[in-house]
Design a protein around this nucleic acid. Sequence first.
DNA 1: GCAAAATTTGAAACATTATAACATTTGCAG
DNA 2: CTGCAAATGTTATAATGTTTCAAATTTTGC
Lengths: 163, 163
Amino acid sequence: MPERALPYRPHNHDACVSHALADARAICRTQNARLTPIRERVLELIWQSHKPLGAYDILAMLGTEGHNAAPPTVYRALDFLLQYGLVHRIASLNAFIGCTHAGEQHRGTFLICRQCSNVLELATPEVSKAIEQAAAAESFRLDDITLEVAGICPRCQGDASNA
Amino acid sequence: MPERALPYRPHNHDACVSHALADARAICRTQNARLTPIRERVLELIWQSHKPLGAYDILAMLGTEGHNAAPPTVYRALDFLLQYGLVHRIASLNAFIGCTHAGEQHRGTFLICRQCSNVLELATPEVSKAIEQAAAAESFRLDDITLEVAGICPRCQGDASNA
DNA sequence: GCAAAATTTGAAACATTATAACATTTGCAG
DNA sequence: CTGCAAATGTTATAATGTTTCAAATTTTGC
Ligand SMILES: [Zn+2]
Ligand SMILES: [Zn+2]
Ligand SMILES: [Zn+2]
Ligand SMILES: [Zn+2]
């Protein structure tokens, strides 16, 4: 059995964060996009864990660190991060999560644990292919896919104690 | 080339509606569920077209016909219809659409036209299979799939005039 | 039939998520 | 500098969804 994916095992999460930030800086540099302090801070907050964060959660976190922001501040930062593929929006949760494939051309599949909330993003070409074929069979021109899978992650399946 | 799916061609939509209502009555009868007047009316309103309807759209429609309902009335009816698989929620639109496979065991794939808003629901076993395999590969226990495809439907592709 | 229990509906308030509109500041080019 | 565009601040408001408790209706056991 292959090693479990990062969200499902203990790991040095600081490395996740710094990797994500480094990627973001690189991507913005090559695209001449401005990763301003607010935008970077929002991205960093989103990456505090592998659980998706609501816009108002982010707002509250900014609040506790003295930056008294209003909703548009956060939504604008999120729009920017979405635009450059640095975060994804989870429609079924109205929440946002850091993209683990930033820069790569991909369509994300999100495995969302109902118990611990951790989200694993998969890049699944076979799934995308199947969806593209299904759309093509109806002569539908596909622009975008929202694919969110709810269930129980391997770690929570193991837990007898449903804390 | 096979005939286009219903939402993409002129058709007798009254037949869609009466079919859906008949199915709903049958399903509720066999499940000992009460398809009360409000619930049936909400289902009928949702089926007025193949475009998804927001909860507050439904609320407004009920309002114009004299039934002055409050939000919980609509949401409760929708919860009931969702529970018995008579409608689906489109997470990416915060809207609801009648299920075209009510009673059948299925996981819906929704093709959503960005231009005309019409939605086609597909039952795509190959896609479901691929998703189930991807989840299984991560030892993730799959409970539910949200699969929504945004794009342009064949009819709108044909339109030169983007009305 | 009839009373108790369960389900459904009504109504008001509230919570959460997201956007509109306009003023101000900041970064940058000429 | 100066002027323009992009980004941020600020206030208000829109859109979506839930909680709570009371009243009405339907079902069930007798
Ligand atoms: Zn991590
Ligand atoms: Zn991604
Ligand atoms: Zn129809
Ligand atoms: Zn369906």
